[in-house]
């Protein structure tokens, strides 16, 4: 890894974030997008052409040719691909959610630890300056003691395999619980103790939940609500969705709207309004930090364990939605998978 340019591969273009990552990688100095592997050959070839790189029909060939990979496959296939990267001793940044089952996430964390390679989870929202400002305010005591938190991570229904329970491992809860879950742990430095969730399918004729409301309890009794619904109208809403937090403390309230920085475009031809972001490219900030860690052999900035804890919350939410009672979360031990 002493070469002047860090070689990065992308494993699967199934996830909607893959093109964004490819674009961001090509903008980062000292990084080469070496190639793309995809089990859907046509999709992989098209992506390789679109991002001026090479399509690798055989995964092990790509793994041999790169310093790190980014896995942007369907949620349920993260595990097998991350294990393959670990076996090839290639550091791997995995799209969120890390896995669709706690046991899978554990195995991934363990395999990468055993192989001595970094495993990262793609939580770009940590790189928002607004989120970092909130973290500083909370940890610096500006809000006094935090009393309660209201959060949203709502979005448009992303379509395709996201509505397939097998490949996605769930619906809105699986897709949209983990970002805020990670922020809660990162900002307040506490683990989850309980989760209560109500889920429903109301907006779309699909086989998974599109409506999801959670009440989350952290250590010390701090509680937070989260709306993880795919409730933004696909055609009419001006932006993909949101990440917001309103934090009530003993000495004040802080509000964060991570994707508030937009130019509002009243598009007459299409008869709709669109919000075009002028905020920071969080994907790029995340990827820059990841390649820095890989280049320097440093721990993953956002770890596999961070991904695992968020998955535990999502899985707990589904258990609660089935049982209609709050579910106590027991943190899986990281040596349990050995």
């Amino acid at each position: 890894m002493q070469s002047s340019s860090l070689r990065v591969g992308i494993v699967s273009f199934a996830h909607v974030h893959a093109p964004d990552y490819a674009k961001a990688l090509r903008e980062i100095p000292g990084v080469t997008l070496t190639g793309i592997w995809d089990d859907v050959v046509e999709r992989g070839e098209q992506a390789a052409a679109a991002h001026a790189t090479r399509f690798y029909p055989v995964l092990s060939d790509l793994l041999d040719a790169v310093d790190t990979v980014i896995v942007t496959a369907e949620n349920a296939r993260h595990k097998v691909l991350v294990l393959a990267a670990a076996a090839a001793r290639v550091p791997v940044l995995c799209e969120k959610p890390l896995a669709t089952m706690v046991d899978d996430a554990l195995q991934m964390v363990q395999a990468c630890a055993d192989a001595g390679v970094q495993l990262g989870t793609a939580f770009p929202v940590r790189y928002s300056a607004a989120v970092q400002g909130l973290r500083q305010a909370v940890q610096g005591g500006m809000l006094g003691e935090t009393l309660m938190i209201r959060a949203t991570n709502r979005g448009r229904f992303p379509g395709s395999w996201f509505a397939d329970p097998e490949r996605a491992g769930g619906g809105a809860v699986m897709d949209h619980t983990v970002h805020v879950a990670d922020l809660l742990r990162w900002i307040w430095q506490r683990e989850f103790t309980h989760v209560y969730a109500e889920t429903a399918t109301r907006h779309h004729p699909i086989a998974v939940d599109d409506s999801a409301l959670l009440l989350i309890t952290l250590q010390g009794g701090l509680f937070a609500s989260l709306d993880a619904s795919w409730s933004r109208p696909v055609n009419a809403f001006p932006i993909w969705g949101d990440v917001t937090m309103e934090v009530t403390g003993t000495t004040g309230v802080a509000s964060v709207d991570v994707f508030a920085q937009n130019v509002e475009f009243f598009d007459n031809a299409r008869g709709r309004t669109e919000w075009r972001s002028w905020g920071d490219n969080l994907d790029r900030l995340m990827l820059e930090d990841w390649v820095r860690a890989v280049r320097n052999g440093e721990p993953a900035p956002i770890s596999g364990e961070d991904g695992l804890r968020a998955v535990e919350l999502a899985i707990g939410a589904y258990q609660s939605a089935r049982s209609n009672v709050p579910v106590a979360l027991s943190l899986a031990r990281l040596d349990a998978a050995r």
Binding site: T199, A200, T248
Partner: peptide, 22 residues
């Protein structure tokens, strides 16, 4: 301050919050 999650018999969900911190 308080926050509640409500499920209606119809299947609709609701989130309600009240606060005196403003």
């Amino acid at each position: 301050g308080a926050m509640a999650i409500v499920r209606f018999q119809s299947g609709t969900l609701a989130y309600a919050e009240g606060s005196w911190s403003y």
